[in-house]
Design a protein around this nucleic acid. Structure first.
Lengths: 190, 190
DNA sequence: CTGATATCATTTGAAGTATAATCATTCCGG
DNA sequence: CCGGAATGATTATACTTCAAATGATATCAG
């Protein structure tokens, strides 16, 4: 499989799980590789969604979050869709220029911008299918419900593990830790 | 979990999420949501990698693919790293401007550009761990080998189902012995 | 040989994404 | 009340990513 051409290098570097000589060390790289391909597929499909419905995946996600709440602030919406505020601004710009949302400066706290969906935006939100991109949807069709569930769990756990880490520690600390690991070839068993 | 705010809407609005009979329900949405968070985490980590090693994740992936082949064309490299040609050009531009790779017009077929790593590029490729981003690496550390494997299988199956693989059944062999070549610092250009 | 077609690399244009810096406003301690 | 810290939104900058259009070259049919 494709990941192998990188996995080999990993072994040489003495990275993680040195448990299996020559074999077991490349799970993480396999995963990264798979993720990159999934990223690409999702991105490509988002473009198709855009061609069909004049709205991209991320835009639809944001619009749905806004419709759902009737009115929110940018920061609040950003948290909801797991995007940074600055990213969200760009998405909101595009949604606004399409007339799907509205921005109004809050009267109480003039720093805030209240964001709400226009009737056009609400209509689109109702009419447009979920931002589940086509290829992913097709892939899901081929899985049993149990498999879908386990796939979801698998990914969600990954998200948990990644997210939980990030909150608890200073970024510098974790980087230093990783550097140390490079040299030690420390067994990465939990 | 965060995916709920969308799953809820689904029920409410009677959306049947392309995957078929209503009850396959939120699995796919959970998955899409998880994927988006993973995308974000990988992206954020790529920035940390860049801060530490002056090279981003995608750039390093491309550089590794180039180093490994000694010399290749843009199209060939693109297939190898699962990127579109137009995407690759940008990455190559940055690698070239950092002096890590070299571009030379092929003499036999003047349409082609032979891409090869400079000694500086090779050195960096050997020295830099691998493009496994930090947060993902940490997440992996917390999983048993079995869990890592099942996670990898899970993602790879998804990739397979999505058909993201059909594009590249290219030659991914003769990779063994990559580091041997790297260590020898053999400059031979075949 | 010539014109049509295919292939390779690149450019163009657009979107998504992040961090860091900036601007405006609010809040709060003295 | 005032000045600095905190907060919300945005801008600036940079990178990744794609499809579509372009330019240069090769290949092939006639």
């Amino acid at each position: 499989m494709d990941a192998d051409f990188l996995a080999e290098k990993e072994d040489e570097m003495g990275h993680s799980d040195a448990a299996g000589p020559g074999q077991s060390g490349h799970h993480d790289l396999r995963i990264l590789n798979a993720i990159r391909q999934i990223i690409r597929a999702v991105d490509i499909d988002s473009r198709k969604l855009a061609a069909d419905h004049q709205i991209t995946g991320p835009q639809l996600m944001c619009l749905l979050a806004i419709v759902e709440q009737d009115s929110t602030t940018a920061i609040e919406a950003a948290k909801r869709v797991h995007l940074s505020p600055s990213t969200l601004v760009g998405v909101l710009d595009r949604l606004e220029s399409k007339g799907l949302i509205r921005r109004q400066r809050s009267t109480e706290d003039r720093r805030e911008i209240r964001v709400s969906a226009t009737s056009k935006g609400k209509a689109l939100a109702v009419r447009t299918p979920f931002p589940l991109q086509y290829t992913l949807a097709r892939a899901m069709e081929q899985l049993s419900l149990d498999e879908q569930d386990s796939t979801a769990q698998c990914l969600e756990r990954l998200v948990d593990l990644m997210g939980a880490r990030e909150m608890d520690q200073g970024p510098m600390l974790e980087i230093i830790g990783l550097h140390a690991r490079q040299r030690e070839a420390k067994p990465s068993v939990r």
